[in-house]
Amino acid sequence: MDRPTFVYVTYIATSLEQLWDALTSEAFTQQYWGEGQLQSDWQVGATVQHINPDGEPNWQGEVLQSEPPHRLAYSFQPLDATENQPSRVQFELQQYGTLVKLTLIHNRLDAQSCLTISRKWTASLSHLKHLLEIADGLALVA
């Protein structure tokens, strides 16, 4: 297997279940992605679709691993890219004292997607942390 393209780790003051729900709920993905939302029933083998605000699919993938509330992985491919091997994203959720450690590992990203997706993920994860911690009435930055 190739080396992962990038790996992100963030610590969020929330529970495993709340974070799992946030990563998978339509309402929440819409809120934290800023534009569009993810649609899937999150069962292994199910389709994952990213739908833009106009209701059109941007990219599609397949759920590869689903072990709530600890591990979620899906493939990831723009609808017009049929020749490339799909990218793969994996979320790992671990209790870390009173926090939840969220690790995001992305494989097989080409250089251009890497740039745009990397910026998007960093902002999304930070936004997600913000939303979950504000919801709990906790300070954003320790």
């Binding site: 992962p4 990038f6 790996v7 992100y8 780790v9 963030t10 990397s118 960093t122 902002a123 994860l125 930070s126 942390k129 954003l140 930055v141």
Partner: peptide
């Protein structure tokens, strides 16, 4: 080893 930009984003 990977650069983790999350703290910089914060």
């Amino acid at each position: 080893h990977y650069l983790n930009p999350i703290p910089i984003q914060e």
